[in-house]
Design a protein around this nucleic acid. Structure first.
Length: 260
DNA sequence: AGCCAGGCTGACG
DNA sequence: CGTCAGCATGGC
């Protein structure tokens, strides 16, 4: 029996956008299959990050009271290991956007172009394949999903992935190498890259800096400068699991749990 | 009503 | 190398 905060991790944390609470359980289509938070197969163990010592995280950043506080205030928050493709599309849509709308866009792209599934009388939709999105006219996508200028990023990226862009091999690379590689995709800058690496390839040392993290780095850690600089400082200060810590910090800041 | 959102691109110094 | 307008859309 897995113990973690499902509402927090799967719905509220903004690391994934296509889970739903139906009847009495959390359900999604992940990698082409119906998944629930109660699954106990090997895929689920990896996806839900079973086996990680989350208590150890606190120890690793014990020099930083606010980090410890954030971790203490959010017990049961986990960092998922998502399929890279799904994380990539979701975070392409996320840029310069708010969480509520990102969820709508991700669900929209699944409903419009993904396979349909039936689970206990509910209809669910999976992520569309790269080849499916690669065929779309960006203007049509823009009309059907209202993702604005991001439509071109989605289609361009889908074409490259369909034609063999090696997403899986990112897992074997050092963060900086993987980062450089994935930012070749149009619409993938430093921040989106770090989200894909943190949530999709298991790079726990990827440290996404968005507007919230930028603010919190200044006020909680007294780190000032460009987002790239903050990124490096975070790794230096918080260590090789700084990405996992980021998730606690981000949520604490964004929800106002801890005052910026 | 107007600023903001899990930013990026391309242009220009 | 750093800076910056422009970008689509909707939440609040």
């Amino acid at each position: 029996m897995r113990e973690f905060d499902e509402q927090l991790t799967l719905i509220d944390s903004a690391q994934v956008f296509h889970w739903q609470f139906l009847d009495d359980e959390y359900v999604s289509i992940v990698d082409g299959k119906v998944r629930t938070s109660r699954d106990e197969d090997d895929f689920a163990k990896k996806y839900f990050d079973d086996g990680r010592d989350y208590a150890l995280l606190k120890q690793q950043c014990c020099a930083f009271p606010t980090a410890v506080k954030a971790i203490d205030m959010l017990p049961g928050l986990r960092v998922l290991n998502q399929p890279i493709w799904e994380a990539l599309i979701a975070f392409l849509l996320s840029q310069n956007n708010n969480v509520k709308r990102i969820r709508g866009l991700v669900l929209g792209i699944c409903e419009k172009y993904g396979d349909r599934y039936t689970y206990k009388g509910h209809t669910l939709y999976g992520f569309p394949e790269p080849s499916t999105l690669a065929k779309l006219d960006p203007n049509v996508l823009k009309t059907q999903v209202t993702c604005g200028y991001r439509a071109e990023y989605i289609v361009e990226t889908s074409k490259l992935v369909k034609d063999g862009f090696p997403l899986e091999s990112l897992k074997e690379m050092e963060v900086e190498t993987a980062r450089k590689e994935i930012t070749r995709l149009k619409g993938v800058g430093p921040k989106v890259a770090d989200c894909v690496l943190l949530f999709g390839t298991g790079h726990t040392d990827a440290f996404p800096v968005d507007v919230w993290v930028s603010r919190l780095m200044e006020s909680w850690f007294d780190v000032h400068g460009s987002r790239e600089y903050m990124c490096g400082e975070a790794r230096r200060l918080l260590g090789p699991n700084c990405g996992l810590v980021q998730q606690y910090l981000f949520h604490a800041a964004r929800t106002g749990l801890i005052e910026i």
